[in-house]
Amino acid sequence: MAIKESKGERIFHVVNVILMIILMILMIYPFWYVIMYSLSKPELAMSGGAFLKPKGFTLDAYKMVFRNRSILYGLKTSLIVTIGGAGIGTLVSAMTAYPLSKKDMPGKKIFTYLFLFTMFFGGGLVPEYLLLKKLHMLDTYWALFLPGCISVWNILVIKNFYKGIPDSLEESAKIDGASDLTVFFKIILPLSKPILATIALFLAVGFWNDFFGSIVYIFDKDKWSLQAVLREIITNTQEAMTRQGITIRNENSSNVSQKTLTMATIMVTTIPILVVYPFVQKYFVKGTMIGSVKG
């Protein structure tokens, strides 16, 4: 028999549900607005207002987006950078965190502090640029993900997770004749799947959303990431120009479909990474939880 709810509890539930629904609408509507705007006919969409359904359905904006060379090249760059960055980044983060999690590593404190130092202080944009130039990484995909592969925050999260794995596991493996590498790849990594998936997702989202790297390190526009292309499309508006103190009217963008095009581009650039979430989410929740409770 179900426990009978008191009046107060019922009111609480009703209010709760209503609040949640309002919150959900607040979250979903902007997204919905973008989708509906991108599907609308430009001259009708321009009159604004709420969009519950597209105003005069058309797919032209999407057709144009997919015919845009920059978008397709951007997709290529973003895929390379996201997959490469998430893969390499997760691997090197896991490998860096492992020795740091061992109590008996010599100089562990110094290494940890050195890593921590970079978390609070950076060289700044120009030195970073010059470094990448000296490394001959300018104008290559490497520049977009190698510098961002190691993040101290991620290392700390993984390190804490490793601490939860009993030392005896490693000891027994060693007794059976496993080398350090074998222990790491055959025992530690498989046990760390939840945290690795979480970190991989962190990194992937980070790399996917990054536009600044492309803007700074890449000269060949065909190598810009999707987000950089999108950013350029979005900020080429009258508002952005006015903010920069320019008062002329941008004749180039007086094309009506500019805004629907922008909306369609936003959808095209957001959906791929959005699709990844459900698949990784089970790890995501588990990962952060396990990493956070030590014991």
Binding site: I215, V216, F219, R231, I234, T235, A240
Partner: peptide
Amino acid sequence: FIMLPGWEEKNVKTNLLMQDKDK
């Protein structure tokens, strides 16, 4: 042709370009 990025970032890029003798 070196394409400058959008309006919010074009100055950053221009600055970097001018700092770098080769580029």
